[in-house]
Design a protein around this nucleic acid. Sequence first.
DNA 1: GACCAGGTAGCAA
DNA 2: TTGCTACATGGT
Length: 290
Amino acid sequence: MQGVIELEEGELDLHKTMQCGQTFSWQKVSGEPFFDESSSNEKYYTTVDGEVVILWKEGENLHYETSGDISRNIGSFFRLHEPLDEVLGDIQRDDIMEEAVEEHRGLRLVNDEFVPTLISYLCSPQMRIPRIKEMVDSITEKYGTEIEYDGTKYNQFPSLYELSDVSERELRRMGLGYRAKYVKSAIRHLIKGKVKEEELNEMGYKGAHEEIQKINGVGDKVADCVLLFSLGYLEAFPLDTWSWSAIEEHYPDHHHEDYHTTADNLRDYFGEYAGYAQQYLFHHMREQED
DNA sequence: GACCAGGTAGCAA
DNA sequence: TTGCTACATGGT
């Protein structure tokens, strides 16, 4: 299955969306290292419903190819149904955000699959972004079933069933460190159905943010990342180290020692698309660093 | 060798 | 509630 989604200029910067550190669920078709400043015209793939989804840009348009039918439409991977102009117009409430938006227009929020996103962010504490990607790739290669399509093999993130027998020791050997026990217990938790994606989808932001923290290793920040990048809770404002220092410096009136108070302040300030504001700010701060 | 990385759990006060 | 601290590993 192939097709083209016609886009206006600035509607989707695929490179930035992939490279800004929000997603660990996509890979390059070329097999080249994922994080690479220079490679701006790559083909990326992920897997959904046991099928491969390949995407690339030609001019402004987004081209896609899938190995078979999938339950999602292509635009949903980057929330293309949301009019970016309106979203960005809404969050540009000060000079900092004006600057971030002007600089990075076209950056989209991903809408990745729930389980891979949860496991990725369970690996994230005290880790650099490229290393998180390496860990997720290792898990994918070691436990996932490859999909062969059109003569090429594609890596697929393992199912919960495929992960059910993985031991904490194996995960540690793969470099996860103390995060191994988080991943192991999360897998058990999900298989037992103690936390269900469908329920998280229905209980609203506050409820879902609390509920998902029943998983060991999920705190306020990881919860917000999973809610934002895989469950579509756009009011989530993950407060990581970058965001904290940015808020402290640029939004002192909203800054507070307490996570919830600060995040609530920012939600009040930025509104329903606070998650977009967070991602633009996060990317902007990281870009300015180097 | 310190120091640090998209934090969290566990424990004391 | 709030305030420590340990936690694994690899890169600079």
